[in-house]
Write a protein that binds this DNA or RNA. Sequence first.
DNA 1: ACACTTGTTATACGATCGTCCAACAAGCGA
DNA 2: TCGCTTGTTGGACGATCGTATAACAAGTGT
Lengths: 207, 207
Amino acid sequence: MSTPAFTRAQRAFTRAEPDARRLSLIEACARVLAQGGAASVSVRAIALEAGVSPGLVGHYFAGIDALVAETYGHVEAQVSEAIGAALDAAGPEPRARLDAYVTASFAPPVASGELLATWIAFWSLARSRPEIARQHDEQYARFRGSLEALLAACGLAPAELRHAAIAITALVDGLWLELCLSPHAFSAAEACEIARAALDRLISTSR
Amino acid sequence: MSTPAFTRAQRAFTRAEPDARRLSLIEACARVLAQGGAASVSVRAIALEAGVSPGLVGHYFAGIDALVAETYGHVEAQVSEAIGAALDAAGPEPRARLDAYVTASFAPPVASGELLATWIAFWSLARSRPEIARQHDEQYARFRGSLEALLAACGLAPAELRHAAIAITALVDGLWLELCLSPHAFSAAEACEIARAALDRLISTSR
DNA sequence: ACACTTGTTATACGATCGTCCAACAAGCGA
DNA sequence: TCGCTTGTTGGACGATCGTATAACAAGTGT
């Protein structure tokens, strides 16, 4: 059953550009994370997914934790880009941009079980790895800042901006979490409707 | 370095009531889960925490997953009891009960990093174990039902009850998650204020 | 007092984990 | 053309995992 002597012929030795190889390992890690969650992440699984030898992971990353930390930044950037693209497609009207943010948050690829599995894995790592917790804090603060600017453009009073942004972020995150975790409880359309109604109340009350 | 021949004398052989032993194992599992997250849960760690031999875990539970599933139900019951006690202490006034629910959600022991670690572990298990996902769905539906009754007592129109309950649950869960995950972003008092303001808007709009 | 049941212990076993490392392949400057 | 650098491989190593099991201790009924 073991491979014959001419082992080397069975897998092509391909030397990749270092940055491309790093990226392919990060993307393989993201796929493993999305499919099996944090419990299934291992050096061997990632190397198999990327089609390389297990030893190569240690050559590019200090350890499995460093690879997961970099994967967190990569996936986070992808989600930010997807939401940013939806905002840009909505035009310059502030309220239309808020609606686009809501719609994009409850539609693939942002709302999906795979992304939830990835995020859960990161949350569980954030509790034991301070640099991942710091990454999360920075991303949260950055997003809340842009949401505050959007709410200000909708006419909200400056004194209410901070709490309003925290409320909208928490509401959308809570709906997103429950939508991914148990899709049968309510639909994405309902989540959109709920979030838009909350935005209506928030904006009309302040004006 | 190895233990001498009279090994048996070093640990007391204590036979416990079967139900009490089961409960002590469940509580030990909850402590391990709270401290180290899902990654640190193992038969040996739980047995060490409970002060028993590793083999005893297999004697009471079909496997490590069955123990974790039962631990989920146990912790969930504890949280429900804590919130229920806060509601009862608030008296019969519906709006006061809503405020008590908000206050209890953002104060220990409900809002704590240990409970977040436990919950994250359960979420990650729910994706691969259908019975845990079902447990979560049932608990979510049950809680949303009682929240709907409370909102109806506050004067909300029946047609708005479902969406209102989903919205409040998502808002509180989102605030709770962020509060546990990064306590520096905002305070528990701010979370209370934000949730109460959302309740005010929701109730005053409907009347 | 003595078999018998059963909770409990300690250990063995195979699988898998992260890390490490010597050997090898390909490109490249001299 | 040839040594040299470096990406890459495959396996070794010790640790830890979940599970299974034989031996043992404490009640328990007779």
